[in-house]
């Protein structure tokens, strides 16, 4: 604030309160509707004040959408992607920044080009690779004639297959195959002064020790920041889990269950249960964002720029 101006201060608060209303309204409506009984939620116009049926609705939504196992699946997927991405990102960024090897720039561009195309635009072929993740290697061996060679020599036919449909690796691996985390780590490693590398070399530490004892502790805040955004964005994935799990019962995630909670066109319009279910599903990422906001904002800004 530079000058004092009462009128402008009032305008500022007015706009901020208006913005608050816009942002909070959907949350408020979700909570209100989720706490009302069927009669209350069907009233026109609706009373925008919470009622006393929240617990019943939560229980009803929990059993109807089978949220227990689905929450577990979502958790496995989100934590799995977060952990896998952070580990892979840190070691590959380490290799790119601190090693001088042939093909370094090619690797760099191969990995960073993946930032350009989100999963949604290549969804059909990605789905087909998930049916057999080893297919590229099979095709390479086939075209090189190695399959035929091995078959004539040993009588064994190389037939590689790894079906990812309805499995945790299927939910996790394709979401790990982008460069978001690698980019963040590269940016961070570039700020490490050369003197630090030289000093630890002088003290006789090899590259792995330097990575483990110096770089990882230094990157702790970046790691937390990255973990928050990865967790939130993975939890909220919809299209990919929808495709990869035909067996919804054992591998479905909570976000997929939302659709099954929507009242049917000619059925009972029990939006109160739908909203209670939506509340449960929204809560984990919302908690992460609300409680870890400082890291979250930092991770977002440094990984996307």
């Amino acid at each position: 604030m530079i000058e004092r101006s009462r009128i402008f201060d009032i305008v500022t608060y007015a706009v901020m309160i208006f913005g608050m209303v816009i942002v909070v309204a959907p949350f408020w409506i979700t909570i209100v509707a989720g706490s009302q009984s069927l009669q209350e939620v069907s009233r026109v116009p609706i009373v925008l004040w919470p009622s006393s049926h929240l617990w019943d609705n939560l229980l009803e939504a929990w059993t109807r959408a089978d949220l227990g196992p689905k929450l577990l699946n979502s958790m496995i997927m989100a934590v799995g992607v977060t952990v896998a991405k952070i580990s892979l990102a840190s070691i590959s960024a380490f290799a790119i920044v601190f090693f001088n090897f042939r093909g370094r720039m090619i690797c760099f561009w191969l990995i960073f080009a993946t930032l350009m195309l989100p999963l949604e635009v290549r969804i059909v072929p990605t789905y087909s690779i998930a049916a057999n993740a080893l297919m590229p290697f099979q095709v390479i061996l086939d075209t090189l004639g190695i399959t035929g060679l091995v078959e004539t020599l040993s009588g064994l036919r190389i037939d590689m297959e790894w079906n990812l449909l309805n499995s945790y690796p299927g939910l996790i691996l394709p979401l790990v195959a982008t460069a978001t985390g690698t980019f963040l780590y590269r940016q961070f490693f570039m700020t490490i002064p050369d003197e630090l590398v030289e000093a630890s070399k002088m003290d006789g530490s090899g590259p792995l020790r330097f990575f483990w004892d110096v770089l990882l502790p230094l990157s702790r805040t970046n790691m937390v920041a990255l973990a928050t955004i990865l967790f939130v964005s993975t939890w909220n994935q919809y299209l990919w889990p929808l495709l990869i799990t035909t067996d919804r019962k054992s591998f479905g995630t909570v976000v997929m269950q939302l659709k099954s909670l929507i009242p049917a066109l000619n059925g009972t319009q029990d939006w109160n249960v739908t909203m209670a279910g939506a509340l449960i599903i929204m809560l984990p990422p919302l908690l992460v964002v609300a409680l870890m906001q400082r890291w979250f904002v930092r991770g977002l800004i440094s990984s996307d720029k």
Binding site: V255, M256, L258, I262, A278, L286, V289
Partner: peptide, 14 residues
């Protein structure tokens, strides 16, 4: 900042 945390389908349902 909150809206960022919400899954698109959850917001869609709301």
């Amino acid at each position: 900042v909150w809206p960022y945390a919400i899954a698109a389908p959850a917001a869609g349902v709301a």
